[in-house]
Design a protein around this nucleic acid. Structure first.
Lengths: 111, 111
DNA sequence: GATAATACATAGGAATTCGATGTATTGGAT
DNA sequence: ATCCAATACATCGAATTCCTATGTATTATC
């Protein structure tokens, strides 16, 4: 399996969020923070380099947009390659969960 | 939450296995490999340094045992501190799963 | 007797994430 | 009107984790 996933929930969640709608960096971070009740609190030092890497890999595409207010944001959308990568990462994630839980269940009574 | 867990399923699973019975390194690796149908294939370069670290942190304790055959193995048992750490890691793991799945469900139909 | 499997170990490197720091704009409070 | 918090982007260096490669030695199998 893709061992990258052992650490890489960040890419998985970014791709998952963008598969629904385009978002900009700060929005992604605050959405994840809110929706997980603070379980995930990505710092800028984690988020932006990861976005740049995903873009360099062609999984997402960014474009600057200037609102009427003057605030500039970089909106990201998922690419075709990104959707394929997401599908594969979803598969890896569920395999990882299943494997871990299988071990845990054998040792304890719970999942 | 303990962000270490994003990557650290290794320590979690080692502690979980040892909470049932004492085991030696090679046995841990092959057990996990077998029980997860090959999803996890830890290499020596991952396993042994991790065992050493867990021992240095006082979460497990190792002792050499020489079988009648002459083969020497280092058996590890979980310590009291190890059990406390395991409890905390189990909690973190279930939080992580819940948080990830909550995001995934919002974006797709599945978990 | 040779080879594969068992059983341990470490060194070096690749990849990921965090902490710290920096710049600039916008909105609200005093 | 001015200050401060929040927004919005960015990068550098450090810490951590894990893998590849390599090494040693013993036991079992052919």
């Amino acid at each position: 399996m893709d061992t990258e996933l052992l650490k890489g929930t960040l890419s998985l969640l970014i791709l998952s969020l963008l598969s629904r709608q385009s978002m900009y960096g700060y929005e992604i971070a605050s959405t994840v923070h809110r929706d997980t009740d603070g379980t995930f609190t990505w710092r800028e030092g984690s988020l932006y380099p990861n976005l740049h890497k995903l873009e360099a890999d062609g999984l997402i595409a960014g474009a600057w947009e200037e609102k009427e207010t003057g605030r500039k944001r970089r909106y990201y959308r998922i690419t075709k390659e990104g959707r394929a990568a997401l599908k594969s990462k979803l598969q890896s994630w569920s395999e990882l969960c299943a494997a871990v839980n299988r071990i845990l269940e054998k040792s304890h009574g719970q999942a």
